[in-house]
Design a binder for these strands. Sequence first.
DNA 1: AAGAAAGGCAACCATATAGTTGCCTTATCA
DNA 2: TGATAAGGCAACTATATGGTTGCCTTTCTT
Lengths: 119, 119
Amino acid sequence: MSHHLNNDAVASAAAVFAALGDPTRLALVERLSDGRAHSIVQLTSGIGLTRQGVTKHLSALEAAGIVASKRTGRETHFSIERQTLENSAAYLARVSRQWDETLGRLESLLAKTETPPKT
Amino acid sequence: MSHHLNNDAVASAAAVFAALGDPTRLALVERLSDGRAHSIVQLTSGIGLTRQGVTKHLSALEAAGIVASKRTGRETHFSIERQTLENSAAYLARVSRQWDETLGRLESLLAKTETPPKT
DNA sequence: AAGAAAGGCAACCATATAGTTGCCTTATCA
DNA sequence: TGATAAGGCAACTATATGGTTGCCTTTCTT
């Protein structure tokens, strides 16, 4: 049993990181992290970019599943998709902790007397 | 006190995500997550890319502080920088949890009058 | 010492990406 | 109902990016 994810999983995780890997988009995500839904004009103010530019970034975030949009009346409101961010955080935590786990397995191997490894 | 990070912090966080936002690089990071140092040829095998291509990706990861390299003899070994990944995981967790905090405040507001909705 | 193994450096190419401008549609409001 | 506000759609440009090939240097091995 490999500890690696399959290619598709890696690819979709990478897609999320790629979407987060732009200062403008990350700033948008931070703005949306207040939990409220914001319109495009709201999100455009103070970003130093045209509305269409912001729209493109929001589309990228939506395609990656980081935000969701809903049109009401003449405006489109964007809100954050918490689960996606949580999953990505968990992914990074897992990868960074693998070293610890390796150490842990090594230790239990060395301590080979009794207690079976958990999981 | 704003819950937003300053521009530099956002930019450097974005740089890390950008570096992770490529399937090849993420695969390299996963490989390095065994905690051992690997040479470039080792990392190249099975990636489906030329050595120089892999070198470029490793340089990108190193520039983002995700891996570190050390030349010994005729080979260069790359290892993971756990702290960077931990920080990024914590960052995402913070951003995604801000919503909870908001909800928490809202709920305690609602609780003063009536039974909170179940969403 | 000679060949092989590991890798650095640079040039080059194709495509993706970030950003713009221009224009059209649909709501809202006075 | 006419102006204005919000935004979708498309074309276009410049630069960044991912990947390659070619070649040179350094280190190891026999």
